[in-house]
Amino acid sequence: MTTQTQVSSKATALMSVLFVALLGTATVFLTGFAHSQTLHDAAHDVRHASGFPCH
């Protein structure tokens, strides 16, 4: 019973790690990589200054 609880709590922890990592990656992608012209123009200076490939 205890081992089962431990296993499931570890699985839950890993699931939330995965979720948060994906959320973060998506945010970074939108800021630094998305090819949309509007996003590119808005994030232009940040992309240049943070070392993201731009243009």
Binding site: L18, G24, A26
Partner: peptide, 29 residues
Amino acid sequence: RNALTSLFFGLAYVGYGLVLVAGYGLAEA
């Protein structure tokens, strides 16, 4: 232009912060 730059710096580092904290969670697991 500068307001957008500040906003996107916020977004970029929130994104990086999420990735970093996910790493902390992984380490703790």
